[in-house]
Design a protein around this nucleic acid. Structure first.
Lengths: 246, 246
DNA sequence: TTCGCCAATGGAACGACGTTCGATGCATCG
DNA sequence: CGATGCATCGAACGTCGTTCCATTGGCGAA
């Protein structure tokens, strides 16, 4: 085995880091474990990144870039959303909505859903995107693309800025919540038993004090982890659409 | 000084923990520092809580309880929202909306804003609420109250459940994002210089590649940290209101 | 009152982590 | 062929959450 000048590369580190992060999560992934997986030493990683935080920022930006690429590919192919979400069609635009606005909102929906795909595959991504500000390259591009989709909406500039930040923020904020619930569900060896046990626990509370919880206990089987995220996203976009009516 | 049987109490620990967390944040708060502030030893804390994670869950639930109390007090006084947000009046309900729905949405808005007040005072709270599931007492009550406000909306049970989870999730998810940006802004000794430096940095990017970013650069002075959260909340509620029309 | 139990405490140590330091290898160039 | 500097890695440092265990002191039972 010919050892070249550099036995490590940033791409290799990123790939290994993603694998490890997917396996054990952000907190339990250690630089020692990552170095061992790369058949290397801990200190070597510090030549490529200033520390664990920066390494995770780099890795997150990589996945954000993949989401942007996927969104662009879908737009070229005239697909309204990733194929994973065919069961969640975009709501019909109202008659009062201009075609420019409707197209912009669909672009935003496609973009956010592409990012959400990455969040479902990598449960640590969303909370990491929260910690790292919009300093990275792809994070800025993401924000820019959301904003561009709003430029033909007829909203004034302040509203455009606000709406772009709300949408950008929504993805990572809501994504972090959904990811966390998915992590907890996976932590139990028997996911289904865990679910029913949770429901039974809720059922043990007084029906008098918690009438709503009791009333919806039977509705949980109709939901999956994606439905909350997508419904909330469509509520935001629906509210945004309504803003353009006045 | 007569040393009683127990020199520590859970209430004292909670109070000291909140103070320390507000001062240094969740990650830099150490059990050693907390014990020193209580003039006690590290291991003593383990008699009251199983570990740092559980301690933070207890503290978070305490603040969530304060938010619930404040919301109840406001409802008694017929106040639509905490006085901190008088500059952000609730949007007028549409004519097509039933009074039951409009009242429910206003209750939700008041509840979420009371929680947001605590998040602004304690920047570590939101991300902590994400990590801890809805197992704690007040977390369940919070969810229940959101759901009760939806029971007269005319939505079917599945939609009620979905909407209640979207709203509950929105607060912590979006709150974590807003809190993080506030932390970063405070980290710099000169907040205003930091802000203009950030804007200058964005301005350094190509106007051709980032037309939207350039167009809204001058609008930042019109926003504060609360506006994104509240606008997003009102967008969600507006979308929810629209759902009840059909 | 006295004794013994046990809730409650805290000093010390353990193991794991992120990070730093210094020495070493090795390709490249004069 | 020797010097330069990029790239690597073993070892150590400091700090953290956590655990162990001896000790304390109030309180009920005899």
């Amino acid at each position: 085995m010919a050892r070249t000048r550099t036995s490590l590369s940033l791409e290799q580190i990123i790939e290994a880091a993603i694998t490890t992060l997917d396996a054990v999560g952000a907190e339990k992934m250690t630089l020692r474990g990552l170095a061992a997986q790369l058949d290397s030493g801990v200190a070597s990683l510090y030549w490529y990144a200033a520390g664990k935080d920066q390494l995770m920022a780099i890795v997150s930006d990589e996945l954000l870039g993949r989401a942007l690429d996927e969104a662009e590919a879908l737009e070229r192919a005239d697909q309204p959303h990733p194929k994973q979400f065919e069961n969640y069609p975009p709501p019909e635009p109202d008659g009062r909505t201009s075609t420019g606005t409707a197209e912009g909102l669909l672009q935003i929906r496609r973009l956010v859903l592409c990012l959400f795909v990455q969040m479902l595959e990598h449960r640590w991504l969303a909370s990491q995107l929260i910690k790292a500000g919009p300093d990275e390259q792809n994070s800025l591009t993401y924000w820019e693309l959301v904003g561009q989709a709003l430029q033909n909406s007829g909203l004034d500039l302040t509203r455009q800025l606000q709406a772009s930040m709300v949408v950008s923020t929504y993805a990572s904020g809501m994504g972090a919540e959904v990811s966390q619930r998915a992590i907890e569900r996976e932590a139990a060896e028997d996911a289904e038993a865990q679910q029913t046990a949770q429901i039974d626990h809720w059922a043990s509370f007084s029906e008098e004090d918690f009438p709503f919880v009791h009333s919806v206990l039977g509705e949980f089987e109709n939901l999956d982890e994606a439905s909350d995220f997508i419904m909330g996203l469509d509520l935001v976009l629906s509210g945004l659409e309504r803003l353009t009516w006045d």
